[in-house]
């Protein structure tokens, strides 16, 4: 067990290091620099060079990298070149948009997918089951941004019930903030629900074929009783893994849906930081997201290892 934990943790650290090097170099290979963007059309090359030096971007790359990493280890994510605001503050501004959106989307997806997926599994082989399976198949093919555009067209433009986009901060109006989040949340949740329904259905089907369910049935339980007394409890195991993987997908979906609805969340912050070559903001924000996903994976894996001894051996 300890060996498993140690190996798993070592991998976590390694993944963090590799990602930080990747993200650091990626944004720098890109042409263009923050000074040129900041100073715009009329700036002279000297002005650009001076600003680059002022921002510390003329230093050797390894120095910049270790400076950044050392800062992060101290809990300092750096400051934006354009506004001089600490990245931590920027994140604190954006999280109240992105986190509720992602969580509500995930909650909606689970709320739909788990019951529907289970239902589809019990009805496998019947027309109803096939219908649900087809529906989820179609749902998987729907791009989340199209769902967003259509929802915004219908409920925002045509009916005028909800904002087509934009953001009312929580501090200004709580209902306003919720209103801005409803459509993005539904778009995100529905599309994710399609994927998740499929996973749930397969997981339940697998469990239904497991020996203990068969034993339970053989001992006189009905198919349903066996499934729900014994099966669902056991099926939750692979689902835990799936949810871990879904964290990554959730972030991807949130990125796009924020753009569709012009929500000032993390994604728009990254996008605008990338296009303005605000390297520190890009690096630190992406690292925070990567770290979050890695932590989720770490926790899921450890839980999995604790729950299922076979995992520890194979790892």
């Amino acid at each position: 067990m300890l060996v498993f934990l140690a190996r798993r943790f070592a991998f976590f650290v390694l993944a963090l290091v590799v990602s930080s090097v990747l993200i650091f170099s990626l944004i720098r290979i890109a042409g263009g620099n923050v000074a040129a963007v900041m100073l715009g059309k009329g700036a002279s090359p000297q002005a650009i060079d001076e600003l680059m030096a002022e921002l510390g971007l003329d230093r050797p790359l390894p120095v910049q990298y270790f400076d950044w990493v050392a800062g992060m280890l101290r809990g300092d994510l750096g400051t934006s070149f354009r506004t001089g605001e600490p990245v931590t503050d920027l994140l604190v501004d954006r999280l109240p948009v992105s986190v509720p959106l992602a969580l509500a989307g995930l909650a909606l997806a689970l709320l739909v997918a788990v019951p529907v997926g289970t239902y589809a599994a019990t009805k496998a082989g019947t027309p109803t089951g096939a219908f649900v399976a087809t529906l989820s198949q179609v749902g998987i093919a729907i791009p989340v941004f199209w769902a967003g555009v259509l929802l915004s067209l219908f409920f925002g433009v045509k009916l005028g019930w909800l904002p087509t986009g934009g953001w009312t901060p929580w501090t200004v109006s709580v209902t306003g903030a919720i209103r801005s989040l409803v459509l993005p949340m539904v778009a995100l949740g529905m599309v994710m629900a399609a994927t998740l329904t499929r996973y749930t259905r397969t997981a339940v089907l697998d469990v239904m074929n497991e020996d203990y369910v068969r034993t339970a049935r053989a001992s006189g339980m009905t198919k349903r009783a066996a499934l729900f007394r014994v099966g669902v409890r056991n099926a939750s195991l692979p689902l835990v893994t799936v949810v871990g993987l879904l964290a990554a997908e959730l972030i991807g979906g949130t990125v796009i849906i924020e753009e569709v609805f012009s929500l000032p969340g993390l994604a728009r912050m990254i996008l605008s930081a990338v296009s303005a070559r605000e390297v520190i903001v890009v690096q630190s924000t992406v690292m925070v997201i990567v770290a979050f996903v890695l932590v989720v994976n770490l926790v899921v894996d450890i839980l999995y290892g604790v729950l299922d001894p076979r995992v520890r051996v194979t790892r």
Partner: peptide
Amino acid sequence: ELARYSQL
């Protein structure tokens, strides 16, 4: 995109 346009 803007950053590369600015530079070039």
